[in-house]
Design a protein around this nucleic acid. Structure first.
Length: 425
RNA sequence: GGAGAGAUGGCAGAGCGGUUGAAUGCACCGGUCUUGAAAACCGGCAUAGGUUUAUCCCUAUCCAGGGUUCGAAUCCCUGUCUCUCCGCCA
């Protein structure tokens, strides 16, 4: 959520910023609501003040043993007026609140303006694209030949966009997960966390998936529903909801491995082949909770931590700076890591690292106490995939494939694979 | 699933329906003292919103939502969560 003061003081600038982020703000509606809010709020507070004073004087009169009946008569109308005013105020504030919740974050200055992923900017490339003296297969063909990936079974058990893994490929996914967790914990200083995979509405409001993007989520139950997490960002970032963090504990760095569930409602027909886009996938997520002055640096650092995994696995990738149209709702700036997939002869997203500034923190009421002022200040949140495990599995399979259809095990993963060096049919 | 207890400031913990935003202790900040530190003593110390140049002032908030009342941290109802005991269970 944006700072309401920013919106009140610089509505025109905010409107421009919203348009850059693919949203719009109806200033006439907003200004009208704001004026209403002020009028009704002042009126309500005056009535409350009157009631409080009266009640106090009744209390004092009673204590002195005076007759309070005349005082009671004089406030008889007050209660009704106050109720009406409070109801009006609630209504206006609810409308304003829904406007605030629907506005995206203001983008960082260095985010290029653009419509979609075509306008993203490549910042750097790493690794060499492998040259094959045979025709490179994609993970679907490789996996089926190895008898380790079964889309039919996934479809039978659950439906489309589900998959089953078995044997060494299932283990390879687990090895990747372990390797990523160990690296981030042992080398990058993150704290491993285990979190719920079902969350409540408040958590999703906090990180910004709700109220706008409900159709992307799987929902369970009706009266007080649970949602399956679309990313570990939701439960992990919500660790600090309604908390005031001690200065000494900052920054907080969390890593969590979770399954992620996405309805992919808007993705009919996209990536229907293979396990690029599934309703359920594994991901290792990095989350940092930092001071405002440190979030830009943390964002760069976290991105490098994600890159470190790709480098350790020797997978070629490139780093993209997302343009305004491709940057998500809550983010102020996002880097995508795209891994090379020989089966598609294309770079595909394997990690998305974002700085949210105080946007999520304001919704979450996540603060730290600044010893210099003694006051709580909003934290900044930064997160990124480190990495999407399912897609990393694909990338390893396709980049490490051999002419005979076998897959070499990357050196970094051998300790996690019982020192097997190759997966063969 | 059954029975009971509870939820109050950063933490711990008081609080007969009436000048209680809330005692007290700890923590924290400033000061006195000290060669320095500790101790002791003095003072300060919730969050959000409105008004304001600022101070002041006003409003709301004692888990959440309703209700009773002129007035609710305090009484009533509902929900959530925590703890204890019993049962069940990976």
């Amino acid at each position: 959520m944006l700072d309401p003061q920013l919106l009140r003081n610089n509505p025109i600038d905010v409107k421009k910023a919203m348009q850059r982020h693919g949203s719009d703000l109806d200033l006439d509606v907003f200004n009208a609501l704001e004026k209403q809010r002020k009028d009704i709020q002042v009126k309500t507070q005056n009535l409350q003040n009157e009631r409080n004073k009266s009640s106090k004087s009744i209390g004092m009169a009673k204590a002195k043993g005076e007759d309070i009946q005349p005082l009671l008569d004089s406030v008889s109308q007050l209660g009704d007026d106050l109720k009406v005013a409070e109801a009006e105020l609630n209504e206006v504030q609810a409308k304003l609140q829904s406007i605030f919740l629907s506005l995206p974050n203001v983008l960082a200055d260095d985010v290029p303006t653009g419509k979609d992923e075509e306008q993203n900017i490549e910042l750097r490339k790493w690794g060499n694209i492998p040259a094959y003296d045979f025709e490179a297969k994609d993970h679907v063909d490789l996996g089926q030949a190895l008898n380790g990936i079964d889309f039919e079974a996934g479809a039978k058990i659950a439906g489309s966009r589900f998959v089953t893994l078995s044997g060494p490929l299932a283990r390879l996914q687990r090895a990747l997960t372990q390797f990523m967790l160990d690296t981030h914990v042992d080398q990058h200083g993150y704290k491993e966390t285990y979190v719920p995979y079902l969350v409540n509405k408040e958590s999703l409001l906090g990180t910004g998936q709700l109220p706008k993007f409900e159709e992307d989520l799987f929902k369970i139950g009706n009266d007080s529903p649970y949602y399956l997490i679309p990313t570990a960002e939701v439960p992990v970032t919500n660790l600090v909801r309604d908390e005031i963090i001690k200065a000494n504990d900052m920054p907080l760095k969390y890593v969590a491995h979770t399954p992620c569930f996405r309805s992919e409602a808007g993705a009919y027909g996209r990536d229907v082949r293979g396990m690029i886009r599934q309703h359920q996938f594994e991901k290792v997520e990095l989350v940092q909770i930092v001071k405002a002055s440190e979030s830009e640096q943390a964002h760069e650092q976290l991105t490098q931590h994600a890159e470190g995994i790709l480098q350790a696995l020797e997978l070629p990738y490139r780093l993209m700076l997302l343009c305004s149209g491709d940057t998500g709702f809550s983010a102020t700036k996002t880097y995508d890591l795209e891994v090379w997939l020989p089966g598609q002869s294309a770079y595909r997203e394997i990690s998305s690292c974002s700085n949210f500034n105080d946007f999520q923190a304001r919704r979450l009421k996540a603060r730290w106490r600044n010893p210099e002022t003694g006051k709580p200040e909003l934290v900044h949140t930064v997160n990124g995939s480190g990495l999407a495990v399912g897609r990393t599995l694909i990338a390893v399979m396709e980049n490490y494939q051999q002419a005979d259809g076998s897959i070499k095990v990357p050196d970094a993963l051998k300790p996690y694979m019982g020192h097997v060096t190759s997966i063969t049919p």
